[in-house]
Computed example of a mutant assay.
Amino acid sequence: MSKNHIPLSQQVVLITGASAGIGAALAQVLAQNFLGIRLVLAARNQEKLTHVANYCSKAGAEVMIVPTDMSQIEEVEALARAAVLRFGGVDILVNNAGYGQMGPIELIPAAATRRQFEVNLLGPLALIRELIPVMRDRGGGRIVNISSLGGRLAFPFGGLYSSSKFALEGLSDALRMELEPFNIKVSVIEPGPVTTEFFDVAGKGVLETVADPENTPYRAAFRQLEKLQERTSSRAWTAERVAQVIVRSLTDNNPRPRYTAATAGDFLLFMMTKVLPTKFVDRFWQKFYGIDLVAQDWKKEQSLKSK
Rank of each mutant, 00 (worst) to 15 (best):
I291L: 01
N4Y: 05
A20Q: 07
L49T: 09
Q72R: 11
A24N: 01
M272C: 14
A61L: 09
D137K: 15
L207C: 07
R115D: 11
F117A: 00
E190Y: 03
P193W: 00
D282G: 05
I132Q: 08
I184L: 12
A236I: 14
K300I: 12
R231H: 11
L153W: 05
L228R: 02
S9T: 13
R114G: 03
Y259L: 12
E47W: 09
R152E: 03
P191L: 13
F280G: 00
V275A: 09
A82N: 12
G123H: 01
L225W: 01
A126Y: 07
S163E: 00
N95P: 14
P7W: 05
E74N: 08
A236F: 14
L207H: 08
K204C: 01
L250F: 03
E208I: 03
M64R: 15
E106V: 02
I6G: 03
D137H: 13
D91M: 13
G290T: 01
N54G: 03
G23R: 07
P67R: 07
A174C: 15
V144H: 07
V76C: 01
V94G: 06
E230M: 15
D252K: 00
N96L: 14
L41R: 02
L153C: 00
L14V: 13
L121I: 11
D69H: 04
G17R: 11
G21F: 08
P217H: 00
R248G: 08
A295P: 10
Y99S: 11
K3P: 02
V242K: 08
V245D: 07
Q302K: 11
P109N: 13
N120R: 15
L26E: 06
T260H: 14
A31L: 14
E240M: 13
V188Q: 10
Y99Q: 14
L269Y: 10
R256F: 01
Y99H: 15
R223L: 09
V194G: 05
L168Y: 04
E180T: 08
K48F: 12
Q116P: 05
A261W: 11
L250I: 12
M135F: 08
F267S: 00
G158L: 02
S303R: 14
A97D: 09
L49C: 13
I73W: 04
A239L: 02
I108N: 03
M177G: 10
R256M: 05
Y55N: 12
I6D: 00
G141N: 03
G192Q: 02
G290Y: 01
P217A: 06
V281D: 02
S148V: 12
V294Y: 04
G139M: 08
